[in-house]
C-alpha cells in the first residue's frame, strides 16, 4: 500500500527545479510512473513529497539537427521514439530498441528519461545510448551540466544525478558516414526485461576497415557497461567472423554478470559472447549498407 505524500504538479522546468531545491531532503520525482509506482507500492520508497514532472510539456520533444544529431527531451515517451520519423539511419536502432521494450501500455506512458534515471542495469535504452555515444543533460537551480552516458549509470539503480538535479535531455551526436548500429535483447518471454542485452555501433572506412566501434552490454554488470576489450579487438581492423568471435570472448570476460533466477553467471557470459558477435555483425552490415 502506498504511503500518502504531498503532491506537486509543476508545469514548467523552472517550477520543477525550484520544487526540487525546496524539498531537497525528501522528494521523489515521478515521470511516467511505470517504475516508481511499483517501488512506492512495495513500500521500498516512502517519500514525503512527490514531484510529478509529466506535465512539463517543454521536455517532451525529439529534435533533429542534421549535423549535430538528435536531441530527445527527458519526458519523451518510449512510444514516441518507437514511431518517430526521425529515427533514421543509425538512429533506427533506437526505435527498434523501444519496440522491444516491455509492452504497449508501458511504452505509451513511460519516458526515456525515467527509464535511464531509474538505473536498472537491465534497462534497454542505456546500452543503445552508450553505443551511440550519447550525453545527458542534467539541470538544477544551480544550472546545467552535461555528462557522458557512460558516467551517468553508476551502480544498481544508482545514477550520477545529485539531489536537486534532474535529467532534462539526451543528446546523440550525428554519426559519421558508414555507421551502423544494432541492438539485441535476450529473454525468454518477448516483453521481459533482458537476461542480457548488447548494443553495437560500428563505423567503417571506405575499404571496410573498422574505424570506430562501441559495444555496450545490458544486464551483464551492476550498470550498463561498455565492452572496451571487445572493441579494442575490432578497432582498426577489417572485421571477420574470427575476429567477432574473439571480440565476443573478450566481452564475455570483461562482463561482470551475476546469477539470479533468470540465468546463471556462466550462462550470462555465454550469452554475452554469442550476442556481441551477432549484433556487431549486424551493425557492420548496416554500416556497409548505409
Amino acid at each position: 500500500m502506498i504511503k500518502d505524500f504531498e503532491y506537486f504538479g509543476p508545469k514548467t522546468l523552472n517550477e520543477a527545479l525550484v520544487l526540487l531545491d525546496k524539498y531537497r531532503d525528501d522528494y521523489k520525482i515521478i515521470a511516467g510512473g511505470q517504475s516508481l509506482i511499483i517501488l512506492l507500492r512495495q513500500g521500498l520508497l516512502q517519500p514525503e513529497n512527490v514531484i510529478d514532472i509529466y506535465g512539463i510539456k517543454e521536455l517532451d520533444y525529439i529534435k533533429s539537427d542534421g549535423k549535430k544529431g538528435l536531441k530527445i527531451g527527458a519526458l519523451t515517451t518510449h512510444r514516441e521514439i518507437e514511431y518517430s520519423d526521425l529515427m533514421k539511419g543509425s538512429f533506427k536502432v533506437l526505435s527498434e530498441m523501444e519496440h522491444l521494450l516491455s509492452t504497449p501500455q508501458t511504452r505509451n506512458r513511460g519516458t526515456i528519461g525515467g527509464n535511464i534515471s531509474h538505473g536498472d542495469p537491465a534497462g534497454d535504452p542505456a546500452p543503445v545510448l552508450m553505443a551511440l555515444g550519447a550525453n545527458v543533460k542534467l539541470a538544477s537551480v544551480a544550472g546545467e551540466r552535461i555528462l557522458d552516458m557512460e558516467k551517468f549509470s553508476v551502480d544498481y539503480f544508482e545514477t550520477a544525478m545529485e539531489h536537486g538535479e534532474m535529467l532534462v535531455e539526451i543528446e546523440l551526436p550525428a554519426p559519421p558516414p558508414h555507421t551502423g548500429a544494432a541492438y539485441t535483447k535476450f529473454n525468454i518471454i518477448a516483453s521481459d526485461m533482458a537476461t542480457v542485452s548488447v548494443a553495437s555501433c560500428v563505423t567503417l572506412a571506405a575499404d571496410d576497415t573498422c574505424t570506430d566501434v562501441r559495444i555496450a552490454l545490458g544486464a551483464a554488470a551492476p550498470r550498463p557497461m561498455r565492452a572496451k576489450a571487445a572493441e579494442a579487438i575490432l578497432k582498426g581492423k577489417k572485421i571477420t567472423d574470427a575476429l567477432l568471435k574473439k571480440a565476443g570472448q573478450a566481452a564475455s570476460e570483461e562482463a561482470e554478470p551475476v546469477s539470479d533466477i533468470s540465468a546463471s553467471e556462466e550462462y550470462r557470459r555465454e550469452l554475452v559472447k554469442v550476442l556481441t558477435a551477432r549484433v556487431t555483425k549486424e551493425a557492420m552490415s548496416r554500416a556497409k549498407a548505409g
Partner: peptide, 16 residues
C-alpha cells in the same frame, strides 16, 4: 518462493 510477482513469474503472452 523467489518470484512471487507477475514481473518475475513468466507466462506466455501473445507474442510468444
Amino acid at each position: 518462493i523467489l518470484n512471487p510477482s507477475l514481473a518475475d513469474y513468466k507466462v506466455i503472452r501473445s507474442l510468444d
